[in-house]
Amino acid sequence: MNGFSELHRASISEGALSSKIKELIALGIAITVRCDGCIAYHVHDSIKAGASAEEIMETIGVAILMGGGPSVVYGCEAMEALSQFANLEQHETAKK
């Protein structure tokens, strides 16, 4: 797991593509390969890397284009994760 964690960190680090773009790519792939845990993880990390809700929604759209009908279901999962993270953020902001 340490090796995989290191691979993730190295792969997502800034380079010719920004970390944000790399996280959005990872999210699109997670949707097309139908990985629930990956979807939540990469929605979270896309937000953390500075992606807007609109950028995440466009990523979901591209994933649906490339993944077909089954990706619609998992795209909805990504939308739900986005909603939950937004609600969590609002709750945390209200506590301050």
Rank of each mutant, 00 (worst) to 15 (best):
Ala16His: 09
Tyr74Asp: 03
Gly37Tyr: 10
Leu7Ala: 06
Gln84Asp: 15
Met1Phe: 04
Glu89Ile: 05
Ala10Glu: 14
Asp45Asn: 12
Met79Arg: 06
Met66His: 11
Leu24Gly: 07
His8Asn: 04
Glu55Arg: 02
Asn87Asp: 15
Ser5Gly: 10
Leu65Phe: 03
Tyr74Ala: 04
Val43Glu: 04
Lys22Glu: 00
Glu92Val: 10
Ala81Thr: 13
His8Tyr: 11
Ile21Glu: 15
Ile25Asn: 08
Thr93Gly: 03
Gly68Asp: 08
Gly28Tyr: 01
Lys95Met: 15
Pro70Thr: 13
Ala78His: 09
Ser46His: 02
Gln90Phe: 08
Gly75Val: 02
Ala51Val: 06
Gln90Gly: 05
Val43Asn: 11
Gly68Tyr: 07
Leu82Met: 11
Met57Trp: 00
Leu88Arg: 14
Leu27Asp: 11
Ile64Leu: 01
Ala49Ser: 13
Leu17Val: 04
Ile29Asp: 09
Leu88Tyr: 14
Glu77Arg: 13
Ser19Leu: 05
Tyr41Lys: 12
Ala30Asn: 10
Glu54Tyr: 00
Ile21Met: 13
Phe4Arg: 05
Glu77Lys: 12
Val43Thr: 12
Ser11Arg: 05
Tyr74Thr: 12
Glu92Met: 08
Ser11His: 08
Leu17Asp: 07
Thr93Leu: 13
Gly69Met: 11
Gly37Gln: 15
Ser13Leu: 11
Cys76His: 10
Cys38Ile: 09
Gly28Met: 04
Ala30Gln: 08
Ile39Ala: 12
Arg9Ser: 11
Glu58Tyr: 01
Gly28Leu: 02
Pro70Arg: 02
Gly37Lys: 12
Gln84Val: 12
Ala10His: 12
